[in-house]
Design a protein around this nucleic acid. Sequence first.
DNA 1: AAGCCGGGGCA
DNA 2: TGCCCAGGCTT
Length: 332
Amino acid sequence: MRQLPWRNTNDPYKIWLSEIILQQTRVAQGLPYYQNFIEKYPDVKALASAPEEEVLRMWQGLGYYSRARNLHACAKEVVEKYDGFFPEDYISLQTLKGIGKYTAAAIASFAFKEAVPAVDGNVFRVLARYFAIEENIADTKNFAIFFNTALEIIPKDQPDLFNQAMMELGATICTPGNPACLVCPVSVGCTAREKGTQKKLPVKEKKVKVRQRFFYYLMWEKDDKIAMKKRGPQDIWQGLFDFDLIESKTALNNNVVEETILAEVPDAEVLSISAPVKHVLTHQRIEAVFIGLKNPSSVYLKERELSYFKKEQIEELPKPILIDKYLKGRIN
DNA sequence: AAGCCGGGGCA
DNA sequence: TGCCCAGGCTT
């Protein structure tokens, strides 16, 4: 069993924090973030009273930034509505921001010993193989099949150990690619192993389409400052700071964008144009060029909701990794 | 019920 | 370069 700082504790705050960080994130990547958060915010009250931007900055690089916003909102609700104590059952926990079925079950079983199965990707896989369940795990309507199967075998006296063992088995032995059946403690009784269908399970069918996007970043410079804007809702990187952005539906073409800028901001002076920078996400593929400029009109700045920041300030702001990569590349 | 949301590891 | 990892929220 791997020794991790959020194990062997009953503190719901630590368990909750680790679970939110570890959603869609590997232990090796999440561990340093967990340690930074615990150091900076030792309890839920400390986290609740932090500014949201600071929390986002702490989260920078982990992705799925709605997790950080929900984390902060949840901490505030726990402090304001529950006097700093997390609700103690599976159903109530799910009313909090960012806590769904999996995370609620993890907290309820680890912190409060409630006998409810925590079905994450690892557990889906273990259950699908052990019981040879062929239903598509990507289809939400099949969740109940897996949940109820686990509910039948979870021991009422130590549900926390059961959940931890199931996840650990999936993470270390019953792995997606090459399950280590020879050393698996439950290989006897595993239906998939009996039938030799381990690698076919779990069944997972999902259609994913990738959006190709083209970004022109306009870096308006003034003295040692650059204009930036906080990103709004309805898109990626909510709440993070971006440079002034013109998005194009067609492939990057510097001439076209230069004409567009000059038409809107006649006095603008282009100082530099970077080579295209590519950024690949799971569902989006972004190509960006960074254009250094000066002399925007004050009307333009106001309409675009841009404000100037000193370069040292920009380092402290929460930003998409794409921006960070570009800025670091420029220094080197 | 379906679509959206970021990173990193690895072949 | 392409494929894999996955839980929760919004529409």
